[in-house]
Amino acid sequence: MGDTTNAQPLLQVENLRVEFPTRRGTLVAVDDISFHIDEGEVLGVVGESGAGKSLTGAAIIGLLEPPGRVASGQIIFDGARIDNIGYEKIRRLRGNQIAMIFQDPLTSLNPLITVGRQLTETIRTHVSVDERAARERAIELLNEVGIPAAERRVDQYPHQFSGGMRQRVVIALALAANPRLIIADEPTTALDVSIQAQIITLLKRLCKEHGTAVMLVTHDMGVIAETADRVAVMYAGRIVEVGPVQDVIRHAQHPYTHGLMNSIPVVRHDVEQLKQIDGAMPRLTDIPSGCAFNPRCPKVFEYCRDARPELVDVGATRAACWLYDDTRRAGDTT
C-alpha cells in the first residue's frame, strides 16, 4: 500500500442528509453529516437507538427503504460518487466491493435454505468457481468465523444454529465476496466475549492484510475500544463528537459522550445504580431547537437552546458543543 497519508479516503461522506417525507412534513433522520474512512481503517459509530446509525449505513449502499431518501450530500467511494448512480450499478457495487452485515441475522438468512447453499450461491455470483470449489470455500469461511464442525454444519438450516452462530454465518456471507468496505451494523451484539474476540481479530486481520475498510456500528464500547481507529458519536441524526478512539473514550469532550461512557457497567466495580442519562433521545418529530441534547444535558446553558453547535476542534477530538465556544460561554452566567 505504501504511503497513504495523501491518498484519498476509500469512503467519503459529505453533508449527507436523509429525509422521510410524511403527510405532516419532512422528518430529517440524518442531518448534514460528514466523515471519511480510509483504506484499512475501522471507523466506529456509536450512539443511542434511533440516532441514525443504520440509516447512514443504508444510505451509503443505496439500501434506504422508500419513502426514505438521500435529500442532499454526496457519497464518494474510491474517488467516484455512488449516491447518484443507477440501481444496477449500486447493486453490483454492493455485491462485490461493499458488504453489509445487518443488525438482525434473521433478515439476512433464508430459513428454508441450508447455510451451505446460501454461502455457495453468494460465492458463485461473485467468483466463477464450480459447485465443489464453492462448497469448499463455504466450509473454509465457516471455519474462519469459528463455526465448529463446519463440514457437517454446512448442510444445516439456520434455525439449527444458536443465535450467536447465526450471526457468524451472516458474517461469513459478507466475507464471501472479498469486499473492500464492510458496513457492519451491530455485528457482535449477539455474541459472547470469546467469539467476539475472534470476530474482532478476524475483522482486524482483514483490514491489515487486505486493506479492507470497516464502518463498525455498535453500542458496545468494549468492541469499539479494541477495534476502531477512530470513533464517531451520533445523537439525533448528527455527529456530536469524532476523534481517535483513545481520546473519545478517555477524554470525552461532549457531555453526551461523557454520559455514555459513564453509564457502562464495569466488572468488579460495585454500584447499586448505574449512572444513567435520564430521558430518551427525541423523536424525529420533535427535535429540540438549538443543541438537540439540551433537555438532557447536565451542562446546558441559555445559548444551547437558541442555536445549533457545529463540530469544532477540542483537544484531540472534534465536538459539537457550545461549551467549547468561548464567545458563547462568555454570555453565560453559570
Binding site: 443511542e48 437507538s49 451491530e186 449477539a190 458496545d220 453509564s263 457502562i264 445504580q273 449512572k275
Partner: peptide, 13 residues
C-alpha cells in the same frame, strides 16, 4: 444485548 449503553443502563436500573 440489543440496546445501546445509555438505554441499557436505564433498563438495568
Amino acid at each position: 444485548s440489543a440496546l445501546d449503553v445509555s438505554v441499557q443502563a436505564q433498563i438495568l436500573n
